[in-house]
Amino acid sequence: MSYMKLDLQFFAADEKTEKATPKKRGDSRKKGQVPKSQDVNTGFLLLMVFGGLYLFGGQMQVSLTEMYSKTFQEYIHWELTTESTAAVFLEITVEMAKILAPIMGIAIVAGIASNLVQIGILFTGEPMKFDLKKMDPIKGAKRIFSARAIVELIKSLLKISIVGLITFAIIWVNKDQMMLMSQKSVEDALVFFGNITIIMGLASGLALLLLSTLDYVYQRYDHEKNIRMSKKDLKDEHKNIEGDPLIKSKIKEKQRQMSAARMMSEVPDADVVITNPTHFAIAVKYDEKVSDAPIVVAKGVDFVAQKIKEVAKANEVMMVENRPLARALYQSSELDRPIDEQFFKAVAEILAYVYRLEKKV
């Protein structure tokens, strides 16, 4: 039974039940793993491109008509040579570039804008890196028959059905006018069918954009599900951020040792060591060139206090017993900082006593 409990605990720890941390989200983003709906791009692109056709359609028609007229009124009379063919090709290319430039510009802006709205600014080459796992036929088969693949299939069928229904409805509403186009001029017929095409494009783009809202919500849900973390993942991440507790304790111990060594090097220059006498030891130094008040250069309790007293004795630094003052200085004073004002009088009396004994005054 105990083995079964351990197994259950192990699987529970590995189960992806926790929300992703900011670090996990940042790492996923660097890898290009972000919630994104291609339908948003498609719908916005269609809407903007057909909107551009609606705005610039008349100008495009005039430019195409002029190019058509020039072809059959001027180019057709040119002598067929390499130079004339190159000239015609160059002129037609330039004219077509001028005609298509606004629409191409709108398409580029729409593509960039739709991505910025969804994922913001992101540059990463991770998705383009070669990965042998992507060529695994077993994983490929799993992706084909996965729940996500079924959802994508349903989405595609839904989009085709809606676009087809919109197209059919627009054609059905305008069927009578279409029948009458045989009685109209070619120019009138082209204008009519051009307008119908733009209307179908705008309606389809708007419908796809509305559908893409639902798809984006699903993509966000699926992304959040994929980047979920287990309790073990959270612990491992915390370890990586904060550091291994064992290593941290060793670092702290090393820092304590270095701090103690530095303190001990300051004790020989102290003027006096105020003791408890057994538990506390405070080394004080007064230098009017450095500070207006005495400075605590070393302090310690128990083992460290004994070491301070040993160093002081070895270097003939005077030690004075004052139990309440030693305890108060240890609790209230910081290393390499002047003592608090409330201790000035007591410490000054001790220093005066020491100076008298050492005949410094």
Rank of each mutant, 00 (worst) to 15 (best):
S84T: 10
F343L: 01
M96D: 04
G194F: 07
T124M: 11
F343D: 00
A326G: 08
T124N: 12
A326N: 04
Y218K: 06
I154P: 05
H238L: 12
A147I: 06
A141T: 02
N41R: 05
R25T: 01
L90R: 14
A207G: 13
N322A: 11
G105S: 10
R356E: 10
M1A: 14
K309A: 04
S37H: 06
D215R: 08
D236C: 10
L214F: 14
A346D: 06
V311Q: 06
E321P: 03
K30Y: 09
K36Y: 15
A298P: 02
N195T: 04
S182C: 08
R228D: 05
F168Q: 07
A189I: 04
A352C: 02
M128L: 14
M264V: 00
K155T: 02
E321F: 04
L214G: 15
S204N: 10
D340G: 10
M48E: 01
V163Q: 10
K23A: 06
V62P: 03
F72D: 05
A169W: 11
S146F: 02
T197S: 15
M263L: 10
N174A: 07
V49T: 12
F145Q: 01
G105K: 09
E334K: 13
P338Y: 01
S161H: 02
R256P: 05
L190F: 15
F50T: 01
I160E: 08
Q342N: 12
L325P: 02
K345M: 07
R327Q: 08
I198N: 10
Q118H: 14
K31E: 15
E74A: 12
V34W: 11
M264C: 04
N240A: 13
M48V: 10
R256F: 13
S249F: 12
Q73D: 12
D215K: 07
A298N: 05
S204D: 06
E83T: 11
A326L: 02
D271P: 01
E152R: 12
I162A: 15
Q61F: 14
M200E: 07
D244K: 09
A20K: 01
G205S: 08
L246T: 11
Q257N: 15
K184N: 14
Q219P: 11
K313M: 00
A326T: 02
